[in-house]
Design a binder for these strands. Structure first.
Length: 266
DNA sequence: TACAATGTTTTAAG
DNA sequence: CCTTAAAACATTGT
């Protein structure tokens, strides 16, 4: 489910455990979410350490523990984080459980497209440090956006917006929302935007991300009325702007909801 | 039954 | 080596 705003929401779900010691760790050791992780070592090192803080960047979450331990969480399609009571009995999709005095921190992921990472070291792990600049960081400039659009000029805009190495945290619903606001068909080629349109795209990316974070990221609140989000999920929806029929079709390998009456190729 | 689900990663083609 | 598209991954719900 999660894009950058949902990821921020889930990061905060473990906040009750910040500053507190982990007294027990339970795992589904062979689960796909631990691919590449030395699970036994992770369990040993997390046990007794203090969860200091959690950070979110794009769709990634990084938890810092005492003793230079770092736990990376990617939620994939169905992952979630939750804080449960001390006596919580884990279910079959609860692959990682951190027990604290008074509460239980849970990572759950039925489909297991998510991923856990673990490392030790003074600073954050390499994969975190090398992530592309987020859409609110200094590095996310109109110029850089123009370069990306040129370089991947043959790609449909929709497919390009989903590329995490350029747009960390943008996912399926946000990409559709952004293109709908811009008024462009999702299969329009990236290389066809002029400079004014690049600026427009840059603005709408940041607006959608900012509002999503302020609402969903805060407390999973409602998005503003009139957003495509509210009518995108099922067949038969109507464009909030024109009242015309919305269409759902595959673009860039994902189901894409758009308004042909409003979103054009030109 | 068959298909679709707010996501990556791998594989292959050009 | 680069860009782009498609399949694969695993589970649940309609």
């Amino acid at each position: 489910m999660p894009e950058l705003a949902e990821v921020e929401f889930y990061r905060k779900q473990w906040a009750p455990g910040f500053g507190r010691r982990v007294v027990g760790v339970e795992v589904h050791a062979g689960a796909r979410v631990f691919r590449g992780v030395p699970v036994a070592r992770m369990v040993e090192e997390l046990k007794g350490s203090v969860l200091q803080e959690g950070l979110a960047k794009g769709k990634q979450i990084l938890f810092r523990f005492s003793g230079g331990r770092w736990l990376g969480v990617h939620l994939g399609m169905t992952g979630e984080l939750a804080t449960e009571g001390e006596k919580f009995a884990s279910g079959k999709h609860d692959h990682l459980i951190l027990r604290q005095r008074g509460r239980t921190l849970v990572f759950r992921d039925p489909r297991m497209f998510g991923r856990i990472r673990f490392s030790s070291g003074i600073g954050p792990p390499e994969w975190w440090e090398e992530m592309a600049p987020g859409v609110f960081e200094r590095g996310f400039t109109v110029q850089r956006l123009a370069e990306v659009l040129q370089r991947c000029g043959r790609m449909p805009l929709k497919a390009l917006l989903l590329r995490q190495e350029f747009f960390p945290g943008i996912g399926n619903w946000m990409a559709d929302e952004i293109l709908w606001r811009c008024g462009w068909a999702p299969f329009r080629r990236a290389g066809t935007l002029d400079l004014g349109e690049v600026r427009r795209l840059w603005r709408e990316i940041r607006l959608v991300a900012r509002v999503a974070l302020a609402r969903i990221g805060k407390d999973w609140g409602e998005l503003p009325k009139g957003w495509l989000f509210h009518c995108r999920w099922k067949d038969g929806g109507r464009c909030p702007r024109t009242g015309g029929a919305l269409v759902r079709q595959q673009v860039g390998g994902r189901t894409t909801c758009w308004s042909p009456q409003w979103q054009k190729v030109t």
